[in-house]
Amino acid sequence: MLKILKYSFYDLMRSRWSYVYFLFYLALGFVLLFLNSDLSKAVITLMNIIIVLVPLIGTIFGVMYFYNSKEFTELLLAQPIKRSSIFMGQYLGVGFSLTLSLLLGLGIPFVIYGLFRSNAVFDFTLLLVNGAFLTMIFTALSFNIALSNENRIKGFGYAILVWLCLAVIYDGLFLMSLIVFEEYPLDTFSLIATLLNPIDLSRTLILLKLDISALLGYTGAVFKNFFGTDQGLMISLFALMLWTLLPIWRLVFKAKRKDF
C-alpha cells in the first residue's frame, strides 16, 4: 500500500492542480493577513472559507483523480497487489497531497506573520487539523461515489450534489426545522443534526475552541451547554474521525466486490 501511496502522491505532486490549490491558499493567507493583521480574526475569516471550500476541492479532486486514473488502477489490479491496498493507497495519496497543499499554503503566510509569537497558535492548528479532516472525509466520500458510478458525468454530479447538500442545503433545512418546531425542545435534535454533518461539526468544533459565543449559534450553544468546552471538543473530534473511517471502510468493502 505504501508504494501505491508513494506513487499516487508523487504523481499528484507534479500535477498543475496541486500547485494551483497551493498557490490559492498561499494568496488567500497573505491577502487575509494583509487586510487584517490580527491573527485571531484572520483565523475566523479563514474558517468560514475553509469550511466550504476544502470539502468542495476534496470532492472535485477525488472524483477527478479516481476517473482519470481508471486505466492505471486496472494496471495495478493485474499486479500482485491486494485490492484494498490499491484503493487505500490512491485515496491516501490524494488526501495527503491535498492536505499538504492546505497546510503549506496557509502555514507559510501565517508563520511569516508571526504565528508562533501570537496566542493563536492552537486555534490555527485546530483549524488546519479540521481542514485535514474535511479533506480526508470528502475525498473518501467522492471516491465512494466514483467507485459506485461507472458514468463519469453522473459520478461528478452526485459528488457535487453531496457537497452542496452538506455545505449549503443541510444548514437551510436545519434552520427551517428549528423555526418550524420552535415550540418543542430541540436540544437533542440539533445535537444529532450537527453530528450528522461533518461541515457543521467542524464549524462547531472551531468555534468552541475560539470560544466566541456570539458566533456559536444555536447548535454551538447547545453543544457547549451539553458537553462543556473540553468534552465538546473531544466528542466532535471523535465524530469527525468516525466520519472519516466509515467512508473508508465502505470504499474497501465495495472495492473488493467490484468488476473492472
Binding site: K3, Y7, S8, Y10, D11, L12, R14, S15, S69, K70, E71, F72, E74, L75, A78, Q79, P80, I81, K82, R83
Partner: peptide
C-alpha cells in the same frame, strides 16, 4: 492476489499516470 506474481499482463489500452516519466514508470 499472490498468484499474480506468476502472470504478466498486457492491457488493451495503455494508460498510466501521465505525470510520470517513462523511466519512473519502469522503475515503479
Amino acid at each position: 492476489w499472490a498468484y499474480r506474481k506468476e502472470i504478466e499482463y498486457l492491457p488493451q489500452i495503455a494508460n498510466f499516470p501521465g505525470n510520470l516519466k517513462v523511466r519512473e514508470l519502469i522503475h515503479m
